[in-house]
Simulated scan of single mutants.
Amino acid sequence: MKAFHLLGAAPLYTNSFVLISDAGHAVVIDPAAEVQEYDKIFKENNATLTTILCTHGHYDHVGSAGVLSREWKARIYCEPADCRGSQLFPLKSADSGYQEGEKLTVDELTFTVWHTPGHTEGGVVLLCGDYLFVGDTVFQGSIGRTDLEGGSMQKMDASLRKLAGLPIPKETQLLPGHGDFSTLGEELANNYYIRSALRGGNADF
């Protein structure tokens, strides 16, 4: 497997990721960067894009999804609740949503999916090997906003408690939708919002 990190445009600088299997099949997680940046990676690595995985449907995470899907005939995964065809949620549809706990496979790559609503109704986290793609559910030391359309602090607290209880090694690299990378263990130990949710509190954000 080869892994690549890209950034979306200023000022949000959304984190986007490309994983390429040993057989040359590419998976994009949160297609936030410019289309040509992905195409350059595919060309340089003789790869074919087959799968686009969206952690949620906000515009800064799905901006290149439609063009990439049409260009490569790639399958888009995004929860129906986040496909609203609006300015905030520009996707009108996806090829598939996610089932709780399902495993999506692309050659040797296996992605396990859990629903984590709170930032949006359709938010998910994706585990692939040593990488945990958490979108805007968790950031280093913080969490995603819950005051936008589809957001809920109550659901976010429940999702944070779920995340803390998943059977994932603490050294797993936590890759958020914005900002610096972390590990799951670091966030369980130091993230105020996760600790508050585990105490049963309701942290204001």
Rank of each mutant, 00 (worst) to 15 (best):
109 L>F: 06
152 S>M: 09
71 E>A: 15
32 A>P: 02
120 T>Q: 04
120 T>D: 08
39 D>N: 15
72 W>A: 13
15 N>R: 01
76 I>P: 04
10 A>V: 00
16 S>I: 02
133 F>A: 13
83 C>M: 11
100 E>P: 07
131 Y>A: 14
17 F>M: 01
133 F>E: 10
94 A>D: 12
19 L>C: 00
47 A>T: 12
32 A>C: 14
105 T>H: 05
52 I>F: 09
24 G>Y: 08
176 P>H: 04
19 L>A: 09
76 I>Q: 07
13 Y>R: 00
136 D>L: 09
51 T>L: 14
6 L>F: 01
124 V>K: 09
182 S>E: 02
100 E>H: 04
32 A>I: 02
25 H>Y: 13
61 H>F: 15
159 S>Y: 02
159 S>K: 03
154 Q>D: 11
67 V>D: 13
101 G>V: 05
9 A>P: 02
197 A>I: 10
119 H>C: 05
81 A>E: 15
2 K>V: 00
205 F>V: 14
118 G>T: 01
186 E>K: 04
200 G>N: 08
120 T>V: 03
199 R>Y: 00
160 L>D: 01
58 H>F: 09
72 W>D: 04
48 T>C: 12
197 A>T: 10
143 I>S: 07
178 H>I: 00
160 L>E: 01
26 A>D: 10
181 F>K: 00
106 V>D: 05
168 I>P: 01
78 C>G: 05
205 F>T: 09
45 N>G: 07
141 G>K: 02
81 A>W: 07
201 G>Q: 09
78 C>E: 03
117 P>F: 07
41 I>F: 10
129 G>Q: 10
4 F>G: 02
131 Y>M: 15
64 S>C: 10
82 D>K: 06
174 L>V: 05
181 F>Q: 01
86 S>R: 12
115 H>A: 05
192 Y>W: 04
6 L>I: 03
29 I>D: 06
138 V>D: 01
173 Q>R: 15
37 E>T: 03
138 V>L: 05
135 G>W: 02
137 T>P: 06
173 Q>W: 14
21 S>N: 13
83 C>L: 13
86 S>Q: 05
51 T>F: 01
33 A>T: 02
148 L>E: 13
199 R>L: 04
119 H>M: 03
125 V>Y: 01
81 A>S: 15
49 L>F: 11
103 K>E: 14
30 D>T: 11
49 L>Y: 07
46 N>G: 07
174 L>D: 06
66 G>K: 14
110 T>C: 14
123 G>C: 03
155 K>M: 12
170 K>S: 03
48 T>S: 14
7 L>E: 02
192 Y>L: 08
169 P>K: 08
33 A>Q: 01
35 V>A: 13
197 A>R: 08
3 A>V: 04
61 H>V: 12
132 L>P: 12
97 G>P: 06
46 N>V: 07
157 D>A: 13
38 Y>I: 08
